[in-house]
Design a protein around this nucleic acid. Structure first.
Lengths: 141, 141
DNA sequence: CAGATACTGACACTGAGTCTCGATTGCGAC
DNA sequence: GTCGCAATCGAGACTCAGTGTCAGTATCTG
């Protein structure tokens, strides 16, 4: 788990000129306690002292800072995740619901191929995998 | 544009044992007229005679049949698209909003690599690219 | 420690999607 | 043809996700 600690994120916030407020600290704690991914409403529910709008504002801020990322679930709904700053992708287990990060240098060359073939210039991308994690495969077999 | 015609979809429906109802025909027309991707509410708005629930039911049915697919926009919201049955991915232009399909055999081998490296077995995946299409690049340069 | 202003919370609102249930309707059988 | 009935539909209330507003509060700088 290379998960960023609340402390480190607080330092990042002030370094970038954002204020360190009680609601923000609060939300960072809550997110760290919610497991590997969580819905916006789970955060709202787990931080009753913090207003709904603030939860969404903070989620967006943290996404912009790169410490929270979106996960697209298999049904198309969004979840969030405290995540390493580096670019990465998600592998979601349809059995246990866990999310693993991975990165793939080979993907970059695939994108470059697509760029050459189509003339499209890729500025960002999402890749989400759905399947069964090693643990679940081992368990059911 | 290898877009499936409403007619072909109607044949597919009855072949699979689904009824050919007026609302379904209606929605197929509307979707074909809405351009390369559309929100659920755009469909609701463009087919006032058809009930809201029916629009969503039909969207889901068509997804299950593989003739409609979801597109994840850059802000994480979902749009829909009449699409070829084959597996494919989307390249979204952030400037003009257009969506292009592409498929990439090379991606499959990337996935296989990930499987080997992590023990995760990939059953499905999404890949969305965000950037600028060839036309927009040519125009602004 | 004071003031400018970034930030917050309450709340109403939009958009996306689901559920229920009584009313229709497509279509295979006869 | 027309009958029957399961598949389908529409209305509308409801949930969940996210946004906008605005007066009030609290952080950090000076």
């Amino acid at each position: 788990m290379s998960q960023v600690s609340p402390d480190a994120i607080e330092r990042l916030l002030s370094r970038r000129g954002y204020r360190l407020t009680a609601p923000r600290r609060n939300l960072l704690e809550v997110m760290a306690s919610l497991g590997d991914h969580f819905s916006a409403d789970a955060v709202v529910g787990a931080a009753p002292e913090v207003g709904r709008a603030t939860v969404f504002r903070t989620l967006r801020l943290l996404q912009d800072l790169g410490v929270v990322c979106q996960v697209v679930l298999d049904d198309g709904t969004l979840a969030y995740r405290l995540a390493p700053e580096e670019h990465h992708h998600h592998a979601l287990c349809v059995e246990c619901g866990s999310v693993e990060d991975f990165s793939s240098p080979a993907l970059e060359s695939v994108l470059r191929e697509v760029e050459e073939a189509t003339g499209f210039s890729v500025e960002a991308h999402r890749l989400e995998l759905y399947g069964r994690c090693a643990a679940c495969r081992a368990a059911s077999n």
